[in-house]
């Protein structure tokens, strides 16, 4: 019931967000045709505005937009005039999603075992290495990781290509660059979760009934300890799937991230609104999944 209610609340929420995004960019000064290659004459600009219905009142434009939205049409791009927003998303989203999912796997694959290990081996010298990696990952931005990886592994050693997005080999450096920060963040959350679970009474019970250390950690501790990671993973995946401007710019990858930034800079109204809606939709749905996972992992959680 709880989740049905949340699903019913989804469309109104998206409506609100679409209204906000729609108005936000239209209230801002500057228009989509300001940065044309040749300065548009007033007649041309008037014709363009009329073609895209920008001369109508804002409310009428919004209703028109909603009309399209209901049919799954996000409208035309005002900057790439031969593409619709649907086209752009259809082209860029698979790229960003592939990169994002791979980075997600990297971040979880490194972060969870590392956090688990540094928590159960507290005080061991290897913990220091793990903790250092974690801190470094959280403090070194992609802006730094990317160029350093390129300099060392692409230019000096020549193991990987410098840029572009054509073969699996091209994915390695961007995935590490994008996932590095999140792997540190996840390792941190996993470690805290595990440290909180280890002294719990049910863990003592599990040991007392004769389970080995590892079995107790794995069967009884892990599913509770991973909860903070799960709740962080929802927003994180939404971020990763919609691309990263820095990584896309560094490696010349045609993803969503650069469209988000450029559409906001160019005042490409329908494109920004569409991409904001895409992000919000992903975020809300992923948070819903996170809440469902929560109830499944922790039997004490009940929603009503």
């Amino acid at each position: 019931m709880y989740f049905v209610k949340r699903l019913i609340a989804l469309p109104p929420l998206l409506l609100l967000i679409s209204l906000l995004a729609f108005m936000l960019v239209r209230v801002a000064p500057g228009g989509p045709f300001d940065r044309e290659r040749k300065p548009a004459t007033p007649e041309i600009e008037r014709a363009l505005r009329a073609k895209y219905h920008l001369d109508e009142s804002v409310w009428k434009q919004y209703l028109r937009y909603l009309g399209g939205l209901v049919q799954g049409d996000l409208g035309p791009s005002l900057k790439q005039r031969n593409h619709s927003v649907n086209d752009i998303i259809a082209q860029a989203l698979p790229v960003s999603a592939t990169l994002g999912l791979a980075s997600f796997c990297f971040a979880v694959g490194v972060g969870v075992p590392l956090g688990f290990y540094t928590a159960v081996r507290r005080g061991h010298w290897t913990e220091m290495i793990g903790t250092f990696y974690t801190l470094l990952a959280v403090c070194v931005p992609a802006l730094v990781v990317g160029p350093l990886l390129v300099i060392v592994f692409a230019v000096k050693l020549g193991w990987f290509p410098v840029a572009l997005w054509t073969s699996p080999l091209h994915m390695v450096l961007p995935v590490i660059t994008l996932g590095f920060y999140f792997s540190g963040k996840i390792a941190r959350l996993m470690r805290e979760g595990m440290l909180n679970v280890l002294p719990a009474e049910f863990m003592v019970t599990a040991r007392a009934k004769g389970l080995s250390d590892f079995k107790a950690w794995w069967r009884h501790g892990f599913r509770l300890a991973i909860l903070p990671v799960v709740s962080y993973a929802g927003p994180m995946l939404a971020d990763l799937l919609t691309g990263s401007f820095v990584v896309e710019a560094l490696f010349q990858i045609p993803g969503i991230g650069s469209f988000i930034v450029n559409s906001a800079l160019n005042r490409d109204y329908p494109l920004i609104t569409g991409l904001v809606l895409l992000y919000a939709f992903l975020l809300i749905v992923l948070n819903l999944i996170v809440d469902a996972l929560y109830a499944w992992l922790d039997p004490r959680v009940r929603y009503e």
């Binding site: 967000i17 906000l20 801002a28 906001a264 991409l275």
Partner: peptide, 22 residues
Amino acid sequence: DVLYSLPSIVFVIVLITTLEGM
């Protein structure tokens, strides 16, 4: 909550360019 679900970068860009435009 609603502001959380907007990509912050869009918000920043619009805000900064708006202020500069004004």
